[in-house]
Design a protein around this nucleic acid. Structure first.
Lengths: 381, 381
DNA sequence: GCCGTTAATCAGGTGTACTAACAAACATGG
DNA sequence: CCATGTTTGTTAGTACACCTGATTAACGGC
């Protein structure tokens, strides 16, 4: 049996990349803690920040004074309402300190872009036809579009966030995005070089999940299914975005969902995409009477529920969000999926589970791309 | 449209529990970094530790001197082999500095326990019949068993690790373990109180996953399926154990795997456990000719592959490990499961995937429980 | 025997957060 | 109306952790 006789002092060979932590990193962390609180809870007094972070008032004062000097935070006068003691001075994130430029490349025909305030308000919105461009031409177009959007900003730009289909590593390198003609393209690096701003690039579904997590109030264990031309998912587990072995986490679209199903573009049969993509859904309902159409959508919902059940069980997720055309998704499909999920998972898992539509609508990816920047530059998410 | 008009400076209402970081926490982290390196790479000179951690030699010397003073680390003389320069003095983890007491409560009839060295060698092994005890009686028995094992240790005991079935929170409180008669039992706290040592308690499948991760050299994105009376899974994503919304992550046993399947103890039909538990597998093969038995096992393998495919895709796992009776699992079942997984997931996902047997055999849970202690007490995993 | 190289330590400095004490500004209550 | 207590934010001094630069020690090579 496996009575492991092992020579002393050497266990396993795998290297775990954990890096040193210096006092200055601790400071950066605490600084992010302050920003995070101001971001989510709004204007707060220094004393309340101290209580919330369990740092001392002295430390908070010091951190806040630096943030004020940087222009990220401002004093907003004394807190209204009468209380005992010296009135508190509220400090809050300056909404007009920075803006973020976001790009959504989900749609193959038309890229979407926006200038977004720190609080998630879309200040400016643009679209640009792709005209069938791929590869380097597409890269150039993206760079031009990003530059245009940067020019639209009314205050300094904190960074550029991009949500794109494909497999993308944690340095913003597109490993592969077949129908964009991108293979091993260091998109973040290219854009940084050309525009001179920090750039974050991530998979669109992953990005969307982040958007819902930060701006949509989604739970810290959630899966977002982005339904468009293809089907992708983004997963947040215990508050952290899942990357996966080769950054391919969330690629649920090409998981077999229907035995002996339709032929998929990927060459296999019955992939989830063959029934759940926007095109598949439209063709399943168009020209049919409402009752039949609803039954067809419900059938897709059951397929979806069956596919998601193992994932939901394995991760004990709190929420599954659907993002895409509401007229197709938010009805019999969603209800059937929810029901199937409940039937196929144990009560302890399904009781805490909610299956609902994305609350951010079409801006999910754009807002998520903004979160990429917020997270990288300010440590806020 | 979702042109989110939101009042300034307040985004989302969810609280994210992130706590402050002080310089002393940074020090603890760096200290763990040193221990981690010594644990996995074996004896190392201070200078090499400095290079590996990217801390300075001064800092490393300081950390090492503390560790030597604590008796955790020792100098092992100069490094053999001739090189230029002053010969390096190797320092290594003292294998005899501490031992760990591990308990495996997976088997309802018989609990297993061991005294384990820091390097994962089983020094002493015991079993104890449960005799049908549940609830408080079982708790008492566990405490006595643990005390007995502590008495067997030949050097100071670093802590006690327990792997148990059931849903267990991150403080070692058993939320529920129905067939142990435990509901909301603070097992870790009880054992700590009675024995006076640090105690870590976690779900057995989760624990097993940790064991494979640390001692078995498993990848940082892996799922371990523990097959016994029931079926449970432990998941490590990006090097971190997944807990889930209500600490029920990994409860795959009661996910529907067979439509209109057999009645399960949980009251529903076709749960994975109804085909994959040891008992179900034995009854599927016993008394049958080898060909039929193999076909039956292969069928179970296909069911397993179908259930795991969405999980593997969603998380882009590197490895799926099976732990349980090798005569049933490691053959047609595993091969069919592997094949099904490859058929039902996209190549980008399945190419990097390996489905194999646990390398630690019956000691998986025991070793994993030791890792719980290592991780909590020394920051090593 | 001198030089270059590598290992480990010593000395001094910077950054971070803490405790203790204090000043400012308010409500309350005799 | 003034003393009292409360809360806020700041100042001063301390402990800790890591860094840089210089120093000592031990080796191989020429």
């Amino acid at each position: 049996m496996a009575t492991t006789t092992r020579s002393t002092g050497r266990v396993g060979a795998r290297l775990r990349a954990t890096s040193k932590v210096l006092p200055e990193h601790a400071r950066a962390h605490n600084r992010s803690l302050v920003l995070q609180h101001l971001f989510h809870e709004g204007p707060t007094s220094r004393a309340d920040l101290a209580r919330a972070t369990s740092l001392t008032r002295v430390t908070i004062s010091d951190l806040v004074s630096v943030l004020i000097a940087e222009g990220l935070v401002e004093e907003l006068g004394t807190r209204p309402g009468q209380r005992v003691g010296k009135p508190a001075i509220l400090v809050g994130l300056r909404g007009d300190a920075f803006q973020i430029v976001s790009l959504d490349l989900t749609d193959a025909a038309q890229m979407r872009g926006a200038v977004i305030s720190l609080t998630g308000q879309v200040v400016e919105r643009r679209t640009l036809d792709v005209d069938g461009r791929t590869g380097e031409e597409l890269t150039d177009l993206v760079a031009r579009f990003a530059r245009l959007l940067v020019a639209q900003a009314t205050c300094p730009v904190l960074g550029i966030g991009v949500g794109s289909p494909g497999v993308i590593d944690d340095h913003g390198r597109v490993i592969e995005a077949p129908n964009r003609g991108w293979y091993d393209v260091p998109l973040a690096e290219i854009l940084t070089d050309r525009i001179g701003l920090p750039v974050q690039v991530a998979n669109d579904a992953n990005t969307a999940a982040l958007g819902e997590f930060t701006y949509g109030g989604a739970a810290s264990g959630m899966l977002l299914l982005l339904v468009g031309l293809g089907v992708g998912a983004g997963i947040v587990v215990d508050g952290i975005r899942v990357h996966g072995l080769r950054f391919a986490a969330g690629e649920l679209g090409h998981t077999t969902a229907v035995d002996d199903g339709e032929l998929c573009a990927c060459g296999r049969r019955g992939c989830l995409e063959t029934v759940l993509s926007t095109r598949a859904l439209r063709s399943a309902v168009e020209g049919k009477d409402p009752v039949t159409a609803d039954a067809d959508l419900a059938e897709v919902g059951r397929v979806l529920g069956t596919t998601l059940a193992p994932v939901v069980s394995a991760l004990n997720l709190a929420e599954v969000l659907l993002s895409g055309p509401a007229d197709l998704l938010d009805g019999p499909l969603r209800e059937a999926a929810q029901e199937t999920l409940q039937q196929r998972t144990m009560p302890a898992v399904s009781a805490g589970l909610q299956l609902r539509m994305s609350s951010l609508g079409q801006d999910v990816v754009l807002l998520g791309a903004a979160v990429l920047v917020l997270s990288a530059q300010l440590g806020v998410s």
